[in-house]
Amino acid sequence: MQLTEFNNSAEITEFLAGDIAAKLSAAIESKGQASFFVSGGRSPIALFEQLSQTELAWDKVTISLVDDRWVDSKHESSNELLVNTHLLNGFAAKANFIGLVGNEESAFDGVDSAVAKIRDINEIDVLILGMGEDGHTASIFPCSEQVDAAIAKDNNGRLIATQPTTAPFERISLTLNEILKAKQVYLPLSGVNKVTVFEQAKQLDDVKKMPIAAVIKQHENLAVLISQ
């Protein structure tokens, strides 16, 4: 884990935009294409908008989601809508986007079709994680019945459906093992509360109490970017 402190969230955004663009460009240079998985929420909006105005070979970049709520892509809670609104504009409009939510009524019925959508992505070059104040990451919630399966070492599935009890909607999410396979993972954290949770997670032995702890402890190329 690499930990870097910044003065504010704007500095994190500036750094991330440049570093992500450089890593995507390097992947394109080495293998002709790149994959970029992003998280939702309000925090990444500024980053998405800055990346959309960054020149690189976006037509060779495939963008998908770390997780999404099982709602229509036009629903205000949809991460797919967030990406379409704030990232797939400007230069980044040329990127190939793959959503995870299908037509099935339940996320639990839609896992196989979602996995099929990303079958051609053999490795994730760049992945941005978020973290909730309960220590959840992606849609792996400590409160959900699926937390054990989501973080199990022997779970080789790429995606899992989850139903948190402390947040609305069924979810579709990358499993822990799929997150750990990503070549580069970024975890930007702004604010005293998030930093405090991060410090607590670092000390946990039982990672299912704060699933972000499993990423912190196991991912070799995790970059944590902090501003108080």
Rank of each mutant, 00 (worst) to 15 (best):
residue 151 I to T: 10
residue 175 T to W: 00
residue 54 T to A: 06
residue 65 L to D: 04
residue 127 L to R: 02
residue 116 A to V: 00
residue 87 L to V: 09
residue 206 D to H: 13
residue 218 Q to E: 14
residue 219 H to M: 08
residue 158 R to N: 15
residue 124 I to G: 03
residue 114 A to E: 09
residue 9 S to E: 14
residue 197 V to F: 02
residue 132 G to L: 09
residue 15 F to W: 11
residue 75 H to P: 04
residue 118 I to G: 03
residue 10 A to N: 12
residue 213 A to T: 05
residue 225 L to D: 02
residue 36 F to N: 07
residue 1 M to P: 05
residue 108 F to A: 10
residue 122 N to W: 11
residue 74 K to V: 14
residue 145 E to D: 15
residue 172 I to L: 13
residue 162 T to W: 08
residue 130 G to A: 12
residue 172 I to Q: 06
residue 19 D to R: 10
residue 129 L to S: 08
residue 182 A to T: 02
residue 171 R to W: 08
residue 164 P to R: 11
residue 147 V to S: 05
residue 132 G to K: 05
residue 132 G to E: 14
residue 38 V to N: 02
residue 201 A to F: 01
residue 132 G to S: 06
residue 103 N to C: 12
residue 147 V to C: 06
residue 64 S to N: 02
residue 96 N to G: 00
residue 66 V to K: 02
residue 212 I to Q: 04
residue 19 D to S: 10
residue 68 D to R: 02
residue 15 F to R: 04
residue 52 S to K: 10
residue 4 T to E: 13
residue 172 I to T: 04
residue 53 Q to F: 10
residue 143 C to V: 13
residue 7 N to H: 10
residue 42 R to L: 01
residue 215 V to M: 05
residue 6 F to V: 03
residue 208 K to M: 06
residue 11 E to S: 08
residue 179 I to K: 05
residue 159 L to D: 03
residue 89 N to K: 15
residue 216 I to R: 07
residue 46 A to Y: 00
residue 159 L to A: 07
residue 99 G to K: 08
residue 44 P to H: 09
residue 26 A to Q: 15
residue 195 V to T: 10
residue 202 K to P: 01
residue 191 G to Q: 03
residue 171 R to D: 06
residue 32 G to S: 11
residue 211 P to V: 02
residue 61 V to T: 11
residue 155 N to M: 09
residue 64 S to L: 03
residue 92 A to Y: 00
residue 149 A to T: 14
residue 222 L to R: 07
residue 54 T to N: 08
